[in-house]
Design a protein around this nucleic acid. Structure first.
Length: 527
DNA sequence: ATAGGGTTAG
């Protein structure tokens, strides 16, 4: 039996028509993982085999050039188009050319082509405007926009996005948005995304709530917006809202929700989402799996984190980092080091953050020699790496060695680094050094509330009560208040409850929790 | 067939 469908490569040359090639090239650009290089490969083969191009071929090829930013290839195609005589016959071909030149930043070229067109349509105008926007030339973009014989939602959205992203003029963007006669999903999402990016989640949410037809992009903008601006509770709330509306989230929304669980330490919610992804067959990728690994690690569930990580079909440096930093933070320092060497064996490119994770794993595990060895392998150590090293030495009780390392640093120590030293001063009762460090911290603006409390304790530990009181007085004078600590606890019913320390909040259930803590402490006392 | 929105994870 001959197969009904034959692979492209099995077709004989006479069957390889222009149409077939066009379809193949288009498929390369529309794949989940677009490969414009491959599309251009087909194009070259097409010409080698003497297959003629038609008016559908060139827009596709030009788009491929645009995606690879292959200006040289694009110019060749341009020449061929003129030679073959397609230039003046087809507006799609001409627009493809403008798009290609715009993406390579050749605005004078695009403009000249545009001016020479016998006939231009709305797409030609929009391409020109978006070209200027891309270059950050909002003045010229506005000029062209004003000259347009007619404008559609695309023209307006390009301008809105440009004012927001290129000049940061969100007020102007909003003015344009309000001026629009009609808006589609993309124009709404563009405006909402601008607000979310600058952290104005109130405005973003207001628009989002006003939308009647939200797309998955809209939901993802809001969920990830809350996440990026330290409101994981709200991110999770919106995610659950989505589910209650029977909307199936995609990987972008799901990643936001998983990361929110990681930030909150909401293990049960996280597990539930993990199950939900599997059950609903949501297309996961390396990012989703890395987020899951990180979430399990942050929630202290190392076993499940290992299971996700080891089951990943492919991993990148971010995945390895989630694993290594997670193991270190959960007290599996030696295992973190094992994974690190495995990672190096698999030829994964090590980056700065990996070294931070590995060094802090050494620090928590007390592996001084190993930590020093790894530090010496870093080609261009950053202040964060020195910070890890100092922390490692301080925790190991080697304060003097830490100080001499600081002296050898090619850059200024930051406040975290001095903070580690100050902690060491308390443990080893070094008052004078503590005072020295406090002065350094003042200079880098790192003398926060915790620092004065620590310094006061250093004085106290050494019987210097008056100096200790002085620190307390500074706290009062500067009006420094310890930032309210906040924990989120998963209630028995699966809901999330905030437990706020240092201030009273009517919204949280501090009384209930304090009551439980009180009974627990009584039980401990009885033992 | 050409133009505008989310690149999310450490």
């Amino acid at each position: 039996m001959r197969p009904l469908v034959r692979r492209f490569s099995q077709l004989h040359p006479p069957n390889k028509t222009t149409y077939t090639y066009n379809t193949m090239m288009k498929a390369q650009l529309q794949n989940p993982t677009p490969d414009p290089q491959k599309a251009l490969g087909f194009f070259n083969k097409m010409r080698r085999n003497g297959i003629s191009c038609d008016n559908y071929t060139y827009p596709i090829v030009l788009k491929a050039c645009r995606m690879t930013r292959g200006l040289w290839e694009g110019r060749q195609v341009h020449g061929e188009i003129v030679k073959v005589g397609f230039f003046n016959s087809d507006v799609y071909v001409r627009n493809g050319l403008i798009g290609m030149y715009c993406k390579s930043g050749q605005m004078s070229c695009s403009r000249a082509l545009f001016e020479g067109f016998c006939e231009k349509d709305l797409v030609s105008w929009n391409l020109l405007v978006s070209g200027y926007v891309e270059c950050g030339d909002m003045v010229e973009a506005q000029k062209v926009f004003d000259e347009m014989p007619e404008r559609d939602v695309v023209s307006w959205s390009i301008m809105i996005d440009g004012y927001g992203k290129k000049t940061g003029d969100i007020v102007r963007a909003r003015l344009l948005f309000d001026k629009m006669d009609e808006r589609d999903v993309v124009s709404w999402n563009t405006m909402i995304d601008l607000y979310a990016k600058v952290g104005d989640m109130v405005a973003a949410r207001e628009l989002f709530d006003m939308m009647d037809r939200k797309s998955l992009v809209s939901w993802s903008i809001i969920i990830n917006g809350y996440l990026q601006h330290q409101d994981p509770m709200e991110a999770l709330y919106v995610f659950n809202l989505m589910l209650s509306h029977d909307i199936k989230p995609d990987k972008f929304c799901v990643v936001g929700a998983i990361s929110a669980c990681a930030q909150l330490g909401a293990l049960d919610q996280g597990k539930w989402i993990h199950m939900y992804i599997k059950k609903k067959k949501i297309v996961s990728d390396i990012v989703v799996n890395t987020a899951l690994t990180d979430m399990y690690m942050k929630c202290g569930s190392t076993e499940e984190a290992r299971a996700v990580f080891n089951g990943m079909p492919e991993k990148n440096v971010v995945s390895w980092n989630a694993m290594i930093s997670g193991l270190g933070a959960n007290g599996f320092g030696d295992e973190a080091l094992t994974y690190f060497s495995q990672m190096e064996q698999e030829q994964i490119q090590v980056d700065d953050l990996i070294y931070v994770s590995v060094l802090s794993a050494c620090s928590h595990g007390g592996f001084v020699a190993k930590g020093l060895e790894i530090f010496n392998r870093i080609k261009d150590p950053k202040v964060e790496h020195y910070g890890c090293l100092i922390d490692l030495l301080v925790r190991a009780g080697k304060l003097e060695q830490a100080i001499s390392f600081i002296a050898s640093m090619p850059m200024e120590p930051n406040k975290d680094l001095w903070g580690s030293v100050l902690l060491g001063c308390r443990v080893q009762k070094y008052v004078g050094l503590g005072e020295f460090v406090l002065n350094k911290l003042k200079k880098v603006g790192g003398d926060d509330c915790g620092v004065y409390v620590l310094m006061s304790n250093i004085y106290g530990d050494n019987g210097m009560w008056e100096e200790g009181m002085k620190m307390r007085k500074i706290l009062l004078e500067k009006g420094m208040v310890k930032e309210g600590g906040k924990s989120v606890i998963e209630a028995v019913d699966g809901g999330l409850v905030e437990f706020v320390c240092g201030k009273n909040s009517k919204l949280c259930r501090n009384d209930d929790i304090e009551h439980v803590l009180w009974s627990l402490s009584k039980m401990v006392d009885l033992e």
